[in-house]
Structure formats: C-alpha cells, structure tokens
Computed example of a mutant assay.
Amino acid sequence: MTQIIRTVADLRALVRGWKAAGDVVGVVPTMGALHEGHLSLARAAKADCARVIVTIFVNPKQFNNPDDLTKYPRTEAADADLLRPLGVDVIFAPSPDEVYPTGFATAVTMAGVAQPLEGALRPGHFDGVATVVAKLFGMTMADRGYFGQKDWQQLQVVKRLVRDLNIPVWVVGCETIREADGLAMSSRNAQLSIAGRAIAPALFVAMTRAAAALRAGDATALATCQTEVLAAGFERVEYIELRDASSLDPAEGLDRPLRLLAAAWLQGVRLIDNIPL
C-alpha cells in the first residue's frame, strides 16, 4: 500500500526500518503533474530497489519566473492514483515550509556543467535544483536516485553534485519517453492547444535530421534545424547546440559522446529536448 508522508521525521522513521532490514531504497524526485515519463522512472526504481519513494514537491527555488511557479500544475490526488498500481511504497509530499523552514539560509551553488545553455538562460535555476536534490537525498536517505534524460543538463548537474559533495547516492539516468509522434513527454505539453500539440513534434523531427546531417559532416546542420523549427510554427528558438555529452562544453569533434540539445517556444510554452549524436 502506498503511503503519503509529509514530514521528514515520519519519512526517516520509516526508512530507518527499511535500512535496518537491508533494503535498497530508490527515490524518484518529481514536481508532480505526472505522466508516463515519470511513471517509467518509478518502474525502473521498482525493478532495482526493494523500496521506492516518489517525491512530489514544486520547488520554488528553481523557478526564475514567479508566474511560472504559480501556473505549474498541482495534481497530487491524480498523481497518487497513477503511482499506487506501480507498488510505490511512499509518496513524499512535503510543504514548502517543511523543505525550507523559517531561517533556512543554505544553498548549493553550481558552476561548470550548470553554467551553459539552461544555466545561462535561467540564472540560479540549477542552484535551486541542486539545493533541493541534495535535501531530498538527505531527507529520503535513498541509495539510488532516478532522473529522466529529457532534462539532460539537469541529469549531468545531479551527477556532478553527488560526485563533488560525496553524496552516497547512485544516480540513474533513464531514457526519454516520447509520444507516438516523437514529442518528448512533459507536464508542459498539456498547456498547448490542439493546434500547438500538432506542431510540437517538429522540434524532435528537425533535431533528428540535424543529427544525421552533423554525422555526415554538414556544417550548416544547426542553422538548418533552427530554420525548420521556426518554419513549423515555433515562435522562438533559444538554442540548438551540439555539446559534449558529459561536460556540456562546445563540441570540438565527433570523436566523443555528444548531445544535441534544444529549447524553443511554442504558444508561450517552453519545450526542451535532446538526442545523442
């Protein structure tokens, strides 16, 4: 039976019992508004771990725009209905005051992999991500943490976080889950109109073509990709860039693992995606 727990004290009391029994504990950090991508992470955790915690917490510290924070969907009851059939042990859904109590004065500041792309466009975003993930790892006392590859830069940030701070959590990156037409699943997709939803897969289609062109040595592939995305009906492209898959430094050749990453706006909704090269 899936329990909903709201305080760190109650959660730790339960997890200590699991640990005493030798159970491996997995955590899936989410902000709720769950979709099949999140559920795939929970299934991966269930396959690896004796006990699984899914956290649902809309983290105010990673939002640059207060309106975006206000608009972010909060669907805890529906989320719980999706998780129960998967056999998740606990939904940890703390209040903001439980996570950031009065007098909270500590933050994790990230450089390196957190600085380009999303980091440059959303100042402080990854500091907020790193701070809450560090706290969630400490609160849950998890052994393994599960994150989707759709947020590729975030995944690299979390990997660097646990490495640099010696946090004893194994970070597992799980494949991006896509709709039948290729659109990466995201809670933000629900904000698109029917017409916008029909346009949205063009980002993945253009990126797939660009990746093939880059492999073939086409130096114009990224510019062509941007043109195709705008022609499909996107209002603005923030970036379409080829980067080192791990460091996110600009790619200097095709002799190492690379990632093609993009962010673009459609109907006022910011969509991101990435694919390996």
Rank of each mutant, 00 (worst) to 15 (best):
I5A: 04
T7A: 10
T7N: 09
R12D: 13
A13K: 14
A13Y: 09
G17N: 09
G17Q: 10
G17A: 10
G17E: 15
K19I: 06
A20R: 15
A21L: 12
G22V: 00
D23C: 14
V24A: 10
V28F: 02
G32E: 05
H35K: 11
G37K: 01
L41G: 02
A45F: 08
K46E: 08
A47L: 10
A47H: 15
A47E: 15
D48I: 11
C49G: 11
V52E: 05
I56G: 01
I56L: 05
F57Q: 01
V58Y: 03
L69V: 01
A78P: 06
A80R: 10
D81S: 12
L83A: 09
R84W: 08
L86H: 14
L86N: 14
V90N: 03
I91K: 00
P94Q: 06
P96T: 01
V99C: 07
Y100P: 03
A111W: 11
G112H: 06
V113A: 11
V113K: 08
A114P: 07
A114Q: 04
P116T: 15
R122C: 07
R122K: 12
G124F: 08
G124R: 09
H125S: 03
F126R: 02
G128R: 07
T131D: 05
V132H: 02
V133W: 00
A134E: 04
F137L: 12
G138F: 02
M139T: 08
T140R: 08
T140D: 05
R144F: 00
F147K: 01
G148Y: 02
Q149D: 04
Q156I: 00
V157T: 06
R160Y: 03
L161I: 01
D164H: 06
L165A: 13
P168E: 13
P168K: 08
V169S: 02
V171P: 04
R178L: 09
R178A: 07
E179S: 14
A180K: 05
L183E: 07
L183I: 11
S187K: 00
N189S: 10
S193I: 07
G196S: 08
I199F: 05
A200E: 07
P201A: 07
T208D: 15
T208W: 06
R209Y: 03
A212Y: 07
L214D: 04
E228P: 11
L230N: 02
G233H: 13
F234H: 08
E235R: 14
V237D: 10
E241N: 13
E241Y: 02
E241F: 02
L242M: 12
D244M: 01
A245C: 07
S246A: 13
S247M: 12
A251T: 15
G253H: 05
L254W: 06
D255N: 15
D255C: 06
R259M: 08
R259G: 12
L260Y: 15
L260E: 03
L260S: 01
A263E: 06
L266S: 14
V269K: 12
V269F: 05
V269Q: 12
R270L: 11
L271T: 01
D273N: 09
D273C: 08
D273K: 05
N274L: 13
I275G: 12
L277N: 00
